[in-house]
């Protein structure tokens, strides 16, 4: 079997990089069958949209991408990324397992020659970081200028009563320093990886869901493998995901400790406030994805 080309955005850091944890285990598993994996880290083969495109053409065999780029190719995939759809990795995995979500995504993505093999978890769950004040209630968020990643985030942040403003991730540190934005919606692991610990002052755990990175494979590449080789690859993906999940569980408290050590105060929500966030967010789910998809996916959330 030829060398397997793998690309991702992060660095080859087994301690802190969730995607590399997956890739490393994936590569080790394939190595048992004498298959060599060539890793292109740090966006060297291009940014998200480029790597997606190269996967689509079979130039990259396995790409770890973000949710945003998948949504460009599969509208349905937004459903899995709805805020407060799940609270943690286990419940996310269960929804993927029990629903036909992945099949729906792959039906859309297959038009572009890409299949989603699963997800690599960033570790920890989504919460609210800010520079301004301890947030413990939904009312505290009112009129806060939150950095939104995209229109979907604008929608649910507005529903919380905040004033979202779209800022690209590259400009977010400056936006925080200068007050263009005073907070954003992310897990501690992302803040640590981005080196933003010193910039932020408060973190409110919302348990709004895990942060899944998308493991995509080239259809061309996969379909040209022999049955035996495909078995190796499936096994390697399963092994990578398994190691990633164990890492994510173990690592979540570590990231929380890093932000606390870095001077960020953790301010948990007051009694009954998470329900208010959930309610406000759910009320606008159908503005992000069609109502029928909302209805479909909520069958699996209870």
């Amino acid at each position: 079997m030829d060398d397997v080309i793998v690309a991702f955005a992060g660095t080859e850091d087994l301690k802190n990089d969730a995607e590399y944890v997956f890739i490393h285990a994936f590569a080790e598993s394939l190595a048992e069958h004498g298959v060599n994996v060539v890793v292109h880290p740090s966006n060297t083969l291009g940014k998200e949209s480029d790597r997606f495109d190269q996967t689509s053409q079979g130039l990259i065999a396995v790409n770890i991408g973000n949710g945003g780029v998948l949504m460009k190719a599969s509208k349905w995939s937004s459903t899995l990324f709805l805020p407060f759809l799940t609270s943690d990795e286990a419940s996310f995995d269960r929804i993927v397992e029990e629903s036909d979500g992945l099949a729906k995504i792959n039906e859309e993505a297959s038009r572009l020659g890409v299949r989603v093999a699963g997800f690599a978890m960033r570790g920890g769950t989504l919460g609210l970081f800010n520079t301004e004040k301890p947030v413990t209630t939904l009312a505290d968020v009112a009129d806060m200028r939150l950095r939104a990643q995209n229109g979907d985030q604008v929608t649910f942040m507005s529903a919380w009563g905040a004033k979202p403003t779209v800022v690209s991730w590259a400009e977010t540190p400056n936006a925080l320093q200068t007050g263009v934005a005073t907070g954003h919606f992310n897990p501690p692991s992302t803040v640590v990886a981005a080196g933003q610990v010193e910039l932020l002052n408060y973190f409110t755990p919302l348990n709004a869901g895990p942060v899944p990175k998308v493991i995509m494979m080239s259809d061309d590449w996969y379909s040209f493998l022999s049955d035996e080789e495909r078995g190796w690859v499936d096994e390697a993906v399963a092994r990578g995901i398994e190691v990633n999940r164990a890492w994510a569980l173990e690592q979540a408290p570590y990231f929380e400790q890093v932000i606390v050590d870095g001077g960020i105060e953790v301010t948990p929500l007051a009694e009954g406030e998470r329900e208010k966030f959930v309610e406000a967010s759910r009320a606008v789910w159908n503005q992000i994805v069609p109502q029928e998809d909302v209805d479909y996916i909520t069958q699996f959330t209870e």
Binding site: G46, K47, S49, D50, D53, Q54, Q57, L59, A170, E171
Partner: peptide, 19 residues
């Protein structure tokens, strides 16, 4: 040469940069 196929996308995305 097989990588030449990625070039149109690279050309477009190299310009499509916020900064």
């Amino acid at each position: 040469t097989r990588y030449l196929a990625a070039l149109p996308q690279r050309a477009m995305s190299q310009l499509d940069v916020f900064a």
